[in-house]
């Protein structure tokens, strides 16, 4: 590297600099929120009007539009690639990043979301199955409920990447079994890999959440 550094060599930015993020909040009662179009969030307005030339509307890059409900809010996501995972659509198209992208192969459970109330692994679930369904991400609960509070109190010393998914599983467990046994908790959470904290912390957290839910009635 020469000492006189010339940053001009990195002058690659062309007309693209005028690109704007095309988030279009048409949110209103009963309408769908249309989120930026694929493949890029930076398509020129002219292109968008003329219809996106890319990707080709057939073959592996065929796209469809999806309507579903996310955390109670109706949304429409145009131009979803048929091979897109639900997790990608939630995180990258809708900006709901609470469900985490972990192993990408269904092993770690960080990407867990609820599809019509049932836990599914976002990374293995095609986005298309969400059509007409109701999707619940960890954002739906925020940190206001007992489960979040208990997880924060007992498991905050870990990296936290697995916690949102574990929170959803815990809520599903407590809905089924208000006072789960330790074995049931282990069984239920065994789909989540945590390498920061031993199981004891999670068992304590679920027990505390169960107690808190019970007290609330």
């Amino acid at each position: 590297m020469s000492e006189a550094h010339d940053f001009d060599q990195y002058d690659f930015l062309s007309a693209d600099s005028s690109n704007e993020l095309e988030i279009d909040p048409l949110a209103g009662s009963g309408t769908y929120t249309v989120v930026s179009s694929l493949p890029s969030q930076v398509q020129h307005a002219a292109e968008a009007v003329a219809g996106p030339p890319i990707p080709p509307a057939s073959g592996p890059f065929a796209t469809v539009s999806i309507r579903c409900t996310v955390n109670g809010e109706p949304v429409e996501v145009p131009e979803v690639w048929v091979a897109d995972s639900l997790l990608f659509v939630l995180r990258d198209r809708l900006g709901r990043t609470a469900a985490k992208d972990g192993c990408g192969e269904g092993e770690c459970g960080a990407c867990l979301v609820l599809l019509d109330g049932e836990p599914v692994l976002g990374c293995l679930t095609p986005a298309l199955v969400a059509e007409g369904s109701s999707v619940t991400t960890p954002e739906a609960y925020g940190d206001g409920d007992e489960v979040s509070g208990a997880l924060a109190a007992h498991c905050g010393a870990g990296c936290g990447y697995c916690l949102p998914g574990i929170g959803l599983t815990t809520r599903a467990l407590l809905a089924r079994q208000p006072e789960p046994s330790e074995a049931a908790i282990r069984e239920s959470l065994s789909g989540h890999l945590c390498r920061c904290l031993p199981p004891g912390h999670f068992i304590d957290a679920v027990n505390e959440a169960a107690q808190a839910v019970k007290r609330r009635g």
């Binding site: 693209d16 690109n19 704007e20 993020l21 890029s40 969030q41 930076v42 995180r91 900006g95 990043t97 609470a98 469900a99 985490k100 992208d101 991400t137 960890p138 954002e139 609960y141 925020g142 940190d143 489960v147 979040s148 509070g149 997880l151 924060a152 109190a153 498991c155 905050g156 010393a157 870990g158 990296c159 936290g160 990447y161 916690l163 949102p164 929170g167």
Partner: peptide, 27 residues
């Protein structure tokens, strides 16, 4: 202790890991 806000943000999925940070327009 280790704090309250950070663990709460982790549990709620708000803690911004590198993968969660928005890249901005044209990412």
């Amino acid at each position: 202790g280790i704090g309250k806000a950070v663990p709460a943000a982790k549990a709620a999925g708000r803690y911004p890991y590198a993968a969660d940070r928005p890249g901005g327009p044209g990412m």
